[in-house]
């Protein structure tokens, strides 16, 4: 009897393993092999010699990058802009979620959510077009507005000073709908008895917002923010590449690790620097993600990745 169960158990394990196999294989090919490929950062990579044949050169590629002026600019842009994105998205999406919580009509909430999701459903290429309609030097709507108020028109795609604000606005525009749904779900999950008790004590609606709603979603907000900070070394490549239309004049404030690596690989063909920056991004990113996960685990076990 025992033997038969053992055989059935083995068969079950085999079948289940077979079901997991295709996905496992694809992950191995497209995720694991490139991780091993990170080692080319320490090599003088030559296309003809390949991953294994290229010669080891230690940290030379890294030295090139960190000695250049680019390193500081790119790191500052990556971290600074991500902080702006995280902070502004947080403020806007929590505000929207709290306002929606004051609306009684389910229909209104649904309509608002649908409309706020429109930007989320568009690719960055399309969003690049939308922005272009506003920032075009001759035809753009923004310059028409400036002209209306008697101001000079601005060459938006040549003035880097405006772009941290423009990119932040567009990031929030595209993602606020997504995050507000998450925060709204957190808010409607709050037990109604808190509000009932507060109402009995004569609390005003405003007091409830500050004394119940906000404190109750505090841990959700903290968890979300820490998880996003864990990914601060990574940028949404599509946003930076399409919105700026890859204009060199804007690099001073818009060049981030991901765009820098892309150009090193595809435009300047400097695979050494590209792979070193990529390796740096992967390692620091790994440490930050592990760290943020550790913190999140302490706050809310269920929200942690592992």
């Amino acid at each position: 009897m025992n033997k038969r169960i053992g055989r059935a158990g083995r068969k079950k394990t085999m079948t289940l393993s077979a079901m997991a196999f295709p996905a496992t294989l694809l992950l191995f090919i497209f995720s694991y092999v490139p991780i091993v490929g990170l080692t080319i950062a320490f090599k003088d990579f030559r296309y003809d010699k390949g991953f294994l044949g290229s010669e080891w050169i230690g940290f030379k590629n890294f030295e090139f990058f960190f000695r250049s002026n680019d390193a500081w600019v790119v790191l500052r842009n990556t971290i600074g802009l991500n902080f702006l994105f995280i902070a502004m998205t947080l403020v806007v999406s929590v505000a929207v979620a709290m306002v929606m919580n004051e609306v009684r009509s389910r229909g209104v909430i649904k309509i608002v959510q649908t409309i706020m999701f429109f930007p989320y459903f568009m690719s960055w290429v399309v969003v690049g077009y939308l922005l272009y309609a506003y920032l075009h030097h001759d035809y753009g709507i923004l310059n028409q507005v400036l002209a209306f108020f008697g101001m000079h028109s601005v060459s938006w795609y040549a003035k880097s000073a405006y772009w941290p604000a423009i990119l932040t606005f567009m990031f929030v525009w595209k993602n606020a709908g997504y995050y507000s749904v998450i925060y709204y779900a957190g808010i409607i999950g709050i037990d109604d008895t808190y509000y009932e008790a507060a109402a009995l004590d004569g609390a005003s609606r405003w007091q409830m917002v500050w004394k119940i709603t906000l404190p109750m979603i505090k841990s959700l907000v903290i968890v979300m923010t820490i998880l996003q900070i864990g990914r601060i070394m990574y940028s949404d490549f599509g946003l930076f590449y399409n919105l700026t239309r890859d204009q060199g004049a804007l690099y001073a404030t818009t060049d981030v690790l991901d765009t820098y690596i892309y150009r090193a690989l595809r435009v300047t063909g400097d695979i050494g620097i590209g792979s070193a920056v990529g390796c740096f991004q992967a390692v620091v990113g790994f440490i930050l993600i592990m760290g943020s996960n550790l913190i999140v685990r302490k706050i809310d076990r269920d929200s942690a990745l592992f």
């Binding site: 092999v33 490139p34 490929g37 080319i40 090193a264 695979i271 792979s275 990529g278």
Partner: peptide, 11 residues
């Protein structure tokens, strides 16, 4: 938590 990134993937 860890990925190879653009350059190794491309090659």
């Amino acid at each position: 938590v860890l990925n190879g990134g653009l350059v190794p993937t491309y090659i």
